[in-house]
Nucleic acid binder design. Structure first.
Lengths: 195, 195, 195, 195
DNA sequence: CATGAATGAGAATTCATTCAT
DNA sequence: CATGAATGAATTCTCATTCAT
């Protein structure tokens, strides 16, 4: 079967990396551990990734890629800013909540150093934030959101709330589904604290 | 007092650790680097900390300690929940914004592994969150905050927004003062997105 | 003739090896580098050579083979020992000076380990030395060279001078042609230092 | 005993390196092998040398240092160029012949790559050649050596002969003492081949 | 014959920690 | 208390070689 060289092996490595890194942390995970779980030789890792860090980068990219791709898709499926916000919140919590291992990676491991955050922050996270801020812009234009909002600031605030919920869910090992918080989050974001 | 010299040296080590870890990241910072900057021998570190990780724990504790201590103090200085919220926001952003190195530690390095987050998260962060949630409870009782708010949830959301602002400030190397965001943050938290 | 394609590919590999090894040194040259330059797959190398070291052996053999073959031929073209010596000197310096990459191989890389020198030294170099020593014998018989010379010793001394000139030329990247030294070398070898 | 930090350990490492490298070749010698023979931990090597290659450099430097130092001393002890030449030849062969392991290093291992030769060739070897060429200059001035000699060229030729004798002795495992060749070498160098 | 993906043994180097002084 | 030389386990990455296609 020639399917091997298609990327199957690359994905096996990434899948193994998610599990091992989520379980032991990036620095406590050795390349050998990833290789063993992926069922390949240590050296094989280096046919697909130039070094250990690149595995983490790839993990991040594919994770963020999904957020951005599906985020755009969800936003396009409804008309109003309020509905769009709802979709984003739901998507975010659902994606994070779907796979605890991946969630651990995105909420904890990917933030393990400034050096690393630097590399990624300004690219893909920025794109994701842009999607959110466009929703805010629309809301203001529609007249449903407050005129005095800075859309970029608001997007960060929204992201902050989502991210905290996600981190909290990862750290508290409750079985409660993360998505179940979606309504509360949207309510809070729309209405704030005040009456 | 012999304690004086003890405290001094211990603090020199912690100060050195903040700088080195902020600059290079926890794993790229060697004990020797910290020792050199602190002006002590490598071995001396182990007279004050049982291992490298404990330095990070201590860093976290003293940082969070300040948040909690000053948080309580600020909250006690004003009467209404709205004012208290304002004080917390201002304090949080001010403390983070005061020292970039310390901010890097708290926003990035302290989150470097689930194992580590586990150890700390549910203790001190929980205490900090409790302060915030008490403010929310008060606001609800006062009638200024929405009745349907879950105070614990709201506290997390508030923390999420603050944390995201802090992280964003650390990652974007702008010179703009972090505290300058306090008003926007309070506005957003109180009023939400909707008109 | 199938041998044609065999020889061609084998030679392509050897040619590639000369360039890569001269440029990076034997140990810094990977089989993959040689394969890439030769335009063949890594595995193909092993159809022509049983291992990496054998490539170096083959390089040596073909290089020394030329010295011996042409050395004999040059020696046969003239009558007196003095003339023969001149031919050998000129040939040696010309062959080395013709191709810097090959010169690097022969003057530096081929000497990279006792183990390797052992394998080759006593065979082909010995044959080359034999040619030289026969010239010395003839010179003594002719009465032009000193009677008290040990021909084997003299051959080594002659080779030493030639070898040093060659090495010096390789290491000093001057463009001066190596052959231009031939006259000085012959003069020195014949007359020595003394008046 | 504080003698340890004096350089005793450093020397133990160098001594061990000579034996191991002579026996197995530079690339076949692992740092662990050197450490074991030196009776230190692997990591200790790196307290004295920044990497494996530096061990080789140090080996070379201390070896050449002796040639230069003793070479100068020998040359100063006699008056005429002929005598000085004799001293150099004897010293060279004696030093090489004294320790076969060190001889293997200097005659074989130190020449293992152009990169390496480059680093060292132009410094210390040049100094050694300068000593020889000064002797030649003196000989010409004295009127004992031929006027038409280029001293630099002659020095290289002399070195070439000495070097070849040394290499030959290393490769042929005869027990014959290398110094016994001194007289023949001087004779050859002074008188050349011709009658 | 030719390929090149896969292997896995092996090696240099780092660094937290210890302990004799 | 303080030192810093020494340790040696642990890890990443390389690369000669193989073999199924």
């Amino acid at each position: 079967m020639a399917r091997n060289s298609d990327g199957t092996k690359r994905e096996a490595i990434l899948d193994a990396a998610v599990v091992e890194i989520a379980r032991h942390g990036y620095y406590q995970t050795t390349v050998a551990m990833i290789a063993r779980r992926a069922g390949v030789a240590d050296g094989t890792i280096y046919l697909y990734f130039s070094n250990k860090e690149e595995i983490l980068f790839s993990l991040f990219e594919s994770a963020m890629g999904r957020f951005i791709l599906e985020g755009r898709s969800q936003v396009d499926q409804v008309a109003t800013a309020t509905e769009k916000l709802g979709r984003i919140v739901e998507l975010h919590l659902t994606l994070v909540g779907k796979d605890r291992d991946l969630a651990i990676i995105s909420q904890v491991e990917l933030r393990h150093s400034l050096h690393f955050m630097d590399q990624i922050s300004r690219n893909q996270v920025g794109e994701y934030l842009a999607i959110i801020s466009q929703v805010v812009v629309q809301g203001v234009e529609e007249g449903t959101f407050r005129k005095d909002l800075d859309p970029v600031f608001a997007a960060k605030a929204i992201f902050g709330v989502l991210d905290e919920m996600a981190t909290d869910w990862v750290l508290s090992r409750k079985n409660k589904r993360l998505e179940s918080q979606a309504k509360s989050v949207v309510d809070f974001l729309l209405g704030g604290l005040s009456i």
